[in-house]
């Protein structure tokens, strides 16, 4: 198996997972009821204003948040069980640049991730080779010093490589553009499109309308913890004189 091909275990397309009647309660905020199909070979963008529940939904998909009601399933497994085989199929990048083992260098962090994933399938060597290819594609030459001293953009790139080095069947990225320079954003877009072509279900959470319209195959618009619209960006436009941003504002304002 070459460094850039996927392990058979990781293939879950076309139905990569699903969310059914999901309810998550955090203090006074409630996410749901929410149902959503997650598909392989697709870039799904979770769109919504601040506080709409995008990050909460991603955390529910990762099994990192208590689910009050409903069902979340990825590749036939429940994320809350945090089974190693399920985790092997997922890659995730949070929007928090401190979500890293900051005492390690980027290379060491990738090796740690490779080691953890290799407990289920694949080898550290393969995954490290892929990590270096990914870093090169992102135009990222990581310094040989602890992540603690990295800039925001370097941290983001470190996180992206760590999330993709095991060729996950599902990739979730919270606010992918945050911290990246224009070159980094373009390289990332290219990388994500390649992932989609390879069958990966790519889920990104963003509040950038124009980017979502241009980049995603399907958008899921959230407002106040609920899905207010879903489908390809072009199908959300109702009137001839409406553009995507008009459609978005109409949806989130409930008009």
């Amino acid at each position: 198996m070459s460094a850039l091909t996927m392990h058979p275990l990781e293939r879950q397309a076309p139905n990569a997972g699903s969310v059914a009647d999901l309810f998550v309660e955090i203090g006074s905020f409630t996410l749901g009821p929410l149902s959503l199909q997650l598909r392989g070979s697709e870039i799904l963008c979770l769109l919504g204003p601040n506080g709409a529940g995008k990050t909460t939904l991603l955390r529910a998909l990762l099994g990192l948040i208590p689910v009050a009601r409903g069902r979340v399933e990825i590749g036939g497994r429940r994320p809350r069980d945090r089974e190693a085989r399920m985790l092997r199929t997922i890659g995730a990048v949070s929007d928090d640049p401190t979500d890293l083992v900051e005492e390690l260098t980027a290379e060491e962090l990738w090796e740690l991730h490779s080691y953890a994933h290799a407990q289920v399938a694949g080898t550290v060597r393969e995954m490290m080779a892929r990590a270096r290819v990914l870093a090169e594609q992102l135009d990222f030459a990581p310094p040989d010093s602890p992540i603690q001293g990295y800039s925001h953009g370097m941290r983001k790139k470190t996180q992206i490589v760590a999330a993709m080095l095991h060729s996950p069947a599902m990739l979730m990225i919270d606010e992918p553009r945050n911290g990246l320079d224009p070159i980094g954003i373009r390289r990332l877009e290219q990388l994500l499109r390649e992932q989609r072509e390879a069958g990966t279900a790519v889920i990104v959470a963003s509040h950038d309308l124009y980017w979502a319209e241009r980049f995603s195959d399907r958008v899921c618009v959230l407002a106040h913890g609920r899905v207010v619209g879903t489908g390809p960006p072009s199908t959300m436009i109702e009137a001839a004189d409406e553009d995507f941003s008009d459609a978005f504002f109409r949806l989130v304002s409930g008009e």
């Binding site: 083992v101 005492e103 390690l104 260098t105 060491e108 090796e111 740690l112 490779s114 080691y115 290799a118 550290v124 040989d144 010093s145 602890p146 603690q148 001293g149």
Partner: peptide, 30 residues
């Protein structure tokens, strides 16, 4: 400013008990 720690002992997954050495390394670098 946040501290920047020099790297002296490198983490390697091929070493015996890699997680133990990972934690030792983190403590030593902190």
């Amino acid at each position: 400013a946040p501290p920047v720690v020099p790297v002296r002992v490198r983490f390697s997954s091929t070493r015996r008990a890699p997680l133990f050495w990972l934690e030792v390394g983190r403590l030593v670098r902190h």
